[in-house]
Amino acid sequence: MKRKYVSLAVLALLLSGCGGVDPNSPQGQRQTIFKEMLKQSEDLGGMLRGRLPFNEQAFAAGAINLDQLTRTPWQHFPQVREEEGETRAKDDVWQRQARFQELARAMEASTAALVLASATPPLKPHKLVDPMQRVEDSCKACHEEFRAY
């Protein structure tokens, strides 16, 4: 009986990998980075909106982490769209590279400004709202132009 359950568990694991994105592919790598960016951004926004307790050190460290993450997904967009796997990136990413790169640099600038705003203690949450909003706005601007929902 135990063998049957072990076999079913192994089969389930094998099937769960079918049809997924290869985590080592450019698409898999950028998806992982974007998920990490989203988690970090949600935590920072949550601290400023009262969903999470504000922790000065965690906020400053999170801003640095978000800034570092923000500089990495762009290298995982190859010059030509990949054929395999579903992606939420519109074809415009590859057809309008200059604009895509412009929005990527704007995102990087907004996270750098957030790091600067959170670099000198004591941190006051109300003074971090505007820099955090600029980060969120830069995410939204790129999504509106280049992400298929």
Rank of each mutant, 00 (worst) to 15 (best):
Met1Cys: 08
Met1Tyr: 11
Tyr5Gln: 15
Tyr5Cys: 05
Tyr5Asn: 13
Val6Gln: 05
Val6Cys: 01
Val6Asp: 01
Ser7Phe: 04
Ser7Cys: 02
Leu8Trp: 12
Leu8Ala: 15
Leu8Glu: 13
Ala9Phe: 11
Leu11Gln: 05
Ala12Cys: 15
Leu13Phe: 14
Ser16His: 10
Cys18Phe: 13
Cys18Gly: 06
Gly19Asp: 10
Gly19Tyr: 01
Gly20Glu: 14
Val21Ala: 10
Asp22Leu: 02
Asp22Ala: 06
Pro23Asn: 10
Pro23Leu: 09
Asn24Lys: 13
Pro26Phe: 00
Pro26Met: 01
Gln27Val: 03
Gln27Ala: 11
Gly28Asn: 04
Gln29Ser: 06
Thr32Ile: 09
Glu36Thr: 11
Met37Val: 07
Leu38Ala: 13
Lys39Phe: 14
Gln40Ile: 05
Gln40Arg: 10
Asp43Gln: 10
Leu44Glu: 01
Leu44Lys: 00
Leu44Trp: 00
Leu44Cys: 01
Leu44Arg: 00
Gly45Ala: 13
Gly46Leu: 06
Gly46Pro: 10
Arg49Met: 06
Pro53Glu: 13
Pro53Asn: 09
Phe54Val: 12
Asn55Arg: 11
Asn55Lys: 10
Glu56Val: 02
Gln57Ser: 13
Ala58Trp: 09
Ala60Asp: 00
Ala61Met: 08
Ala61Gly: 08
Gly62Ile: 02
Ala63Cys: 05
Asn65Leu: 14
Asn65Gly: 12
Asn65Gln: 15
Leu66Met: 04
Asp67Arg: 07
Gln68Ala: 14
Gln68Asn: 12
Thr70Val: 11
Thr72Leu: 14
Thr72Met: 10
Trp74Ile: 09
Trp74Leu: 03
His76Glu: 10
His76Cys: 02
Pro78Leu: 00
Pro78Gln: 03
Gln79Val: 12
Val80Tyr: 03
Glu82Asn: 05
Glu82Ala: 12
Glu82Gln: 11
Glu82Cys: 00
Glu83Trp: 03
Glu83Leu: 12
Glu84Cys: 00
Glu84Leu: 02
Gly85Asp: 05
Gly85Phe: 04
Glu86Trp: 05
Arg88Lys: 11
Arg96Lys: 15
Ala98Thr: 12
Ala98Pro: 04
Ala98Leu: 06
Phe100Pro: 03
Phe100Gln: 01
Glu102Arg: 00
Leu103Trp: 03
Leu103His: 04
Ala104Leu: 03
Ala106Phe: 00
Met107Phe: 08
Glu108Asn: 15
Ala109Phe: 00
Ala109Trp: 00
Ala109Cys: 03
Thr111Phe: 02
Thr111Met: 02
Val115Pro: 10
Leu116Lys: 15
Leu116Glu: 15
Ala117Asp: 09
Ser118Gln: 07
Ser118Tyr: 04
Ser118Arg: 04
Ala119Ser: 15
Ala119Phe: 01
Thr120Gln: 14
Thr120Leu: 07
Pro121Ser: 05
Pro122Glu: 12
Pro122Cys: 11
Leu123Ala: 07
Leu123Asp: 11
Lys124Pro: 07
Leu128Phe: 10
Leu128Tyr: 06
Leu128Asn: 08
Val129Arg: 15
Asp130Lys: 10
Asp130Cys: 00
Pro131Glu: 08
Met132Cys: 06
Met132Trp: 09
Met132Gln: 13
Gln133Ser: 13
Gln133Ala: 15
Arg134Cys: 02
Glu136Trp: 07
Ser138Asp: 14
Cys139His: 03
Lys140Gly: 06
Lys140Tyr: 09
Lys140Val: 10
Cys142Arg: 04
His143Phe: 09
Glu144Ile: 08
Glu145Gly: 13
Tyr149Ala: 12
Tyr149Asn: 14
